[in-house]
Structures are given as structure tokens and as C-alpha cells.
Design a protein around this nucleic acid. Structure first.
Lengths: 213, 213
DNA sequence: TGACAGTGTTTACAGCGTTAACATCAAAGG
DNA sequence: CCTTTGATGTTAACGCTGTAAACACTGTCA
């Protein structure tokens, strides 16, 4: 007996189930954030039995972590694109543009893909190695590294006191991260997109002024 | 037949089940954030059957919203205390201290009670009225209002250009909110408490410099 | 050809949120 | 004093979830 339980797929084996499940997980995260990436629903969308997922992911957290990693990579890619598009100029002007590019890309991704953005910052219950800071885009450099490059140049250009440099990445990151979250599920939820973009620039203005004052 | 299903409580009726469930919900949120406030577990801790909760809360979201409201009130209370402890001085000095008090209290609460802090920003699936901005402490004023008072005085004192005033509350809030989140479940998770406190002050420095530059 | 490792399926279980029907109690009205 | 009624708690049951265990199919290598 083949037991064939309504097997719509041609082969018994799927071929690339891991990627298919990850893609389904990304879709779910896009639609409803981390809470929406439900193991059974992912397998359903792929057309496979619930427990097939366990051949490729230890548990739901593992799938969600993979989704998180891919979302972080998308964020990095988006920031990379803005970063690479910066025209030549004085080192100072380029550094300022770099800081702006990182911040603008960060918030733009959060506003465009709130579900993926929230999933990106999912923290697995067991593991302690948050990869949020280490995922890199096509350039091979993470957003945090790009930010660091810009801030180092702030100091080299003499527009930022060296005393302010330590951990400045995290100060800038905080501002932009917090703003993104207030926009996507905080009190600024209702803010129309064009206004949110405008206020994003003011957040970056504040950070820049705070560093260079 | 009394059907008494292991009723350890003296009376059939509980007396103040709503508050008891809310307290259990707060405890759960404190221990594990919003995801940990599980309806059945709350009733279990109170010593009541699962469905008793539905006499007092429409559904799990309603309980979680109540927890969120109470957590926000705790946050407001904490900020109030710092705000009220500010010594007299020039209006400018007081305003600067007020800004600092709001930011410091905000992050301190997040670090002391990460679970409650995350639960405070739970957003119900249905409702759109986020109360995050409107919960007030004993003073009757919300943290957002306290922040606004300080920023208005920044302008009145002439240390902040009036052009920068609109929506400055949200810029400041973003920085502090983002920093708190990076600390409690972001890449700054490992930062020891004393260092986190120190960096908090630098976040506020940055905001202040960004406004008054 | 046959063993085997990889992958997918079925079955099963406990825990969750939630609905519906039932039980108990306190207070109000005759 | 008895009855009725509304508020509050309980039990039973359903479908959903994540997950473990046992089983089935299939390509590969001896």
C-alpha cells in the first residue's frame, strides 16, 4: 500500500524543502511578523506534512531564526544600495551622507516591511548569539560596520570630538531603531508615510547634530 | 450534587477575580514578557478554572491589554518620581534635568523590568487606540506630557530653536526607546548594568546636543 | 541485489484559546 | 420566607498549535 495521503507533489521527495519552508516562513513573517510564522502553516503552504519540517529545522525557533537571518540580510542589502549610491565629495560630506544613508535605509526597510523587520529582531529563547549586528549585504559589510566607517570619518574630519566616538554606533542605532518601532507598532503607527520619511530625516539631523556639536 | 471539582477556595465565588487575574498576568509578563501571559496559566495561579477568566476579560488580548496598561502606569510612576525630585534652579537647568529624568527613568524601568516593559508596548490585534502615550502617573501627567513640558521650556529658554520644536518629543522618545530595546533584547543584551546606565546618559547627551546645537 | 541513509508521512499527545451548557451564589421582590 | 434572577464560577468539548515516535518511500553504494 502506498498510503499516498493526497500527495499532490509528483515525487515523494520534495527536492528543496528547506528553502521552500524558509520562503514560506518569510512570506508569513512579511504578512504578520514573527508570531505569524507558524510551522504547520508553512508546511501547509509548501504542500507537505507538518513533521517534514523537522528534517530541516530542529524546531519552530530554528525556522524563525532562519527567517530572522534572511530578513537581516535583506535589511543589509537595502542599506548597502543606498550606501553605494553616495556621490563623491569631500570626506566629511561623504561621511555625513553615509550616516544618512544607513539611517534612511534602516527606517525605510522597517516601514516597507514591518513584518520582516520585526521578525529580524526575533530573539531565540535558547541561543544567545544575536546575529542582528553581524549580517552583511552584498558588500560583505554589515550595517553596523558601515555605520562605524562613517563615524570614524566623522572623527578623522574633526567634526566629531574623539571623546564622543566610543559606542557612538549604538547611540545612532538606538535613535533610528526606536523611531522605526514607534512608527510600525507604537504611537506613531498612524503617521502617513511621507511624514514618517520626513521625520526620519529629522531623527538623523538630531543624531548628526548630537555628534558634531 | 455539588460537583465540587477540587475547589480549594472557601467560597464558590472568588471575590476579586479580575484583580487577581491581572496580578497573575503582571507576574507572568514580568517573568517572560507578553508572550508569557498565558490565560490558562493565569487562572491556574489564581486557583480557578480556565474559563472563569472570560467573565472578566473578553479574551486573552483583553487581559494582555490590561497588563499593558498597568505596566505603562508603572513606567509613568517611575518617571514621575524622578521628575518630582528635580531641585530648583534656573528654568533652563530645570528643563535639562527634566529631559534627563524622563530618559533616565524610561531606560531604568526597561532594564529593571524588561518583561513588563515589553508587555507595555503590546499592541492588540484589533484595537487601534494605543494607550502608550496616554498613561499617566500619580502626577496625572503622562511621560509624553512631562517630556513636552521640558522641551517647551527648551524653546522658551532660547536654547532650542523653535523650528526644531515640532515633534521633538518623538525624536527624543525614539532614541531612548530604541536604546532600551537594544539593551533588553537586542545586540546590547550582554552589556552590564552599570555600563548600560552610563551609555543611557550618553544617549540623553546626544539628544540634548541635537536639540540645542 | 540488498543494505542503508535521507527524507517525507502518519499517528498521537499535551497545551493553548475559546464556545456552549451547566452549577452556584447573593440579592431583590413577592 | 420563598422564589426568581443575574453575576460568577465549572465542566465538557473543539480546533489549533508544537512536537515525539514509528513507519514508508527512494536514491545510492557495496
Amino acid at each position: 500500500m502506498t498510503t499516498a495521503g493526497a500527495l499532490s507533489r509528483p515525487n515523494y521527495h520534495h527536492g528543496d524543502l528547506r528553502h521552500a519552508l524558509l520562503a514560506a516562513g518569510m512570506e508569513l513573517a512579511r504578512e504578520g511578523g514573527p508570531d505569524a510564522v507558524v510551522l504547520r502553516e508553512a508546511t501547509r503552504r509548501v504542500g507537505v506534512s507538518p513533521n517534514a519540517a523537522y528534517r530541516h529545522f530542529a524546531d519552530r525557533d530554528a525556522l524563525l531564526s532562519a527567517v530572522s537571518d534572511e530578513a537581516l540580510a535583506m535589511l543589509a542589502t537595502r542599506i548597502d544600495a543606498l550606501f553605494d549610491g553616495i556621490p563623491a565629495g569631500t570626506k566629511e560630506a561623504v561621511a555625513r551622507a553615509q550616516l544618512r544613508a544607513v539611517g534612511t535605509g534602516y527606517v525605510a526597510f522597517a516601514l516597507d516591511e514591518p513584518g520582516l523587520f520585526r521578525a529580524a529582531f526575533f530573539v531565540p529563547t535558547n541561543l544567545e548569539t544575536s546575529s542582528a549586528a553581524s549580517k552583511s549585504g552584498p558588500s560583505g559589510r554589515s550595517p553596523l560596520e558601515l555605520l562605524s566607517v562613517a563615524l570614524d570619518e566623522f572623527v578623522a574630519s574633526g567634526i566629531m570630538p574623539a571623546a564622543r566616538r566610543p559606542q557612538a554606533e549604538f547611540l545612532a542605532w538606538s535613535s533610528v531603531h526606536g523611531f522605526a518601532l514607534l512608527c510600525i507598532d507604537g504611537p506613531l503607527r498612524a503617521l502617513p508615510r511621507d511624514q514618517a520619511d520626513a521625520v526620519t530625516q529629522r531623527v538623523i539631523d538630531m543624531v548628526e547634530a548630537g555628534f558634531t556639536a
